[in-house]
Amino acid sequence: MLELKNINAGYDFLQVLWDVSFRVDEGELVALIGPNGAGKSTTLRTIAGLIKLKSGEILFNEKVINDKPTHLISQMGISYVSEKLNLFTGMSVRENLILGAYAIRDKEVQLETLAYIFELFPRLEERKDQLAGTMSGGERKMLAIARGMMSKPQLMLVDEPSLGLQPNLTQDVFSALIQLRERGVTVLLVEQNVNATLSFSDRAYVLEQGKIVMEGPSKEIKANKHVRNAYLGI
């Protein structure tokens, strides 16, 4: 479904990603792990079209997308929940969600999705008229993920959803992601919480200093000695 071929990318004069290649197949939940500053967020930003490539190719459903602007990539079915969340803080929860379905013009489909989202995150329904900017950290995370789902994406890129959350909220977020996969949405997940992530993801890639150093089924990665030493502290 998604394929990165020899990506080189970065910011102005700082190259962050070096020859990164990987793929995510339909229906999978793939984890991308690595230390801080490895370039995980940069990878997701590059896929979302927020950063231009220096070289390489990104394919989505066999089509080249790296020459497309962000809004078209979004409209093609890739939803990116960034670590900054990028919510519309001066708007209500409901408006944020409606905007999430910006590319869906059919009002009825919009409302159906909204009803489904409210079912999935009852807390958001309770708060639907509250301004996004006044919500707690956990609620904002929920809202960002929910907004990302509103466009009925085929692929979701989720950046560190558990960052700064209390354990019980983290659990909620993870189960939401697992539910996503059950609904047939493909997920590429960046997480610091390596242990938990490797226990529910299908496959994983390890990114260090801008290079993919390891890949495989999550179970194998979890059993790997280097990973156990570096990320699991065992």
Binding site: A48, T70, L87, F88, M91, S151
Partner: peptide, 25 residues
Amino acid sequence: TRVGRAIRAVSQDETGAQLVGINLN
């Protein structure tokens, strides 16, 4: 309106607006 809401979205978060499929240009 849908487009009017998009204008407000851009004024609040440009990146967020692009990510939900709004054509910034």
